[in-house]
Write a protein that binds this DNA or RNA. Sequence first.
DNA 1: TGCCGGTCTTACCGGTGTCAAGATAGGATT
DNA 2: AATCCTATCTTGACACCGGTAAGACCGGCA
Lengths: 214, 214
Amino acid sequence: MPKSSSTTSGHYHHGDLRHALIAEAVRTVETEGIEALSLRRISTRVGVSHAAAYHHFADKSALMTAITAEAFTHLAGVLSPCLELPGTAVDRLTALGVAYVDFAYRNRGYFLVMWRPELRDPALESEVITAGDEAYGIIRGAVQACHDQAGELPYDPTEMTIGAWAMAHGIAQLTVDGPLAKWFTDPVALSHLARNIIDNTATSIYARPPGTGS
Amino acid sequence: MPKSSSTTSGHYHHGDLRHALIAEAVRTVETEGIEALSLRRISTRVGVSHAAAYHHFADKSALMTAITAEAFTHLAGVLSPCLELPGTAVDRLTALGVAYVDFAYRNRGYFLVMWRPELRDPALESEVITAGDEAYGIIRGAVQACHDQAGELPYDPTEMTIGAWAMAHGIAQLTVDGPLAKWFTDPVALSHLARNIIDNTATSIYARPPGTGS
DNA sequence: TGCCGGTCTTACCGGTGTCAAGATAGGATT
DNA sequence: AATCCTATCTTGACACCGGTAAGACCGGCA
């Protein structure tokens, strides 16, 4: 079975068409937008006919599912180092949010595809869920650490996890694929914005818990 | 010029094809998802030929732009009453966020289209910006009111406005078109979730300002 | 050598966005 | 009233897309 053959391709006709298609799809979205993404186009670009992809993916939605699963795995890989950072639990939660926004900006191709569920096959959504749960677990852990460090808090950690995710995701969506995209084209300016917003919020919630205010 | 003729249609061939197409498009997205949206399909459904739409919209992206502008206007109409609510400025900001999430849930068709900028014609984006600025201004006003009521705060109101928008939008995206959609199919449960998250956050930031903590 | 399974190609189908040409209706002009 | 005019709508065509079927090709194996 000449399955994966070698890494340098050149073997049969292509060598590793599956990964090449995924990479080309992400690249196409990155440079020309998601509306330019078609199986025929990326197949041609990779140097094969428009039907070759069907020997590696059941259909287009299966490709999209694979890209999304890869995107969530990649995201988890970007988030997890934040948990090892020095400082307080709030510092790490803030770093997580900034990393999330940064991921969206630097991996626009992945980010745009992963938030278009209509492109995926619902029957294969379990792949996405598995990969997404890993990222969710990281956020959840960081929020839980804030709760543990702050003592008794009248907030539900699950709800606050959704809130943390929502805030990071909202900033990413608005600035990378939304109406604020025109104003935040500089990655460091965007990072500063995300850091300010998230730090102000997380600090207010966890470093000044209720009962201490006026 | 038989422009708009009458409201009951029946006049010429259709009467008010433009609005009928917009309404049918939104309905189709609502019931079958955005991947099922095509000019030919909605044209057929409305009872005209597949090319009739081109006498009212330059192309498909122009239709999408019109839908998006209408969506933002509709959103502003849902948000603005929140500014008249009794209570504190924080109460009104929270109500704004809940209304935003509620809008997304109850107007899934509008919401899905308005956050897919690749479907629109960039040349017509000014229509969207005009309508979107109205919604942004409402959020901005509510945030500013919190700042005014809280006194001197070391936060930039513009950044916090983006934060407020991001949080509401993130909750909406995650629960209406994202990985949390399976868990929040009940509108009242979703409202409660949004209220808890947003109220905890807004109260932490604005009702317990820095300098009063431990 | 001949077989065989995985890979890729060619050819085709239905559907979609878009354009060009023509038909039609209803008001305005004479 | 007969005519023109213009917006509206239809028909027909084109290129592109996702998807399928049939066959060609390559590599390993008996």
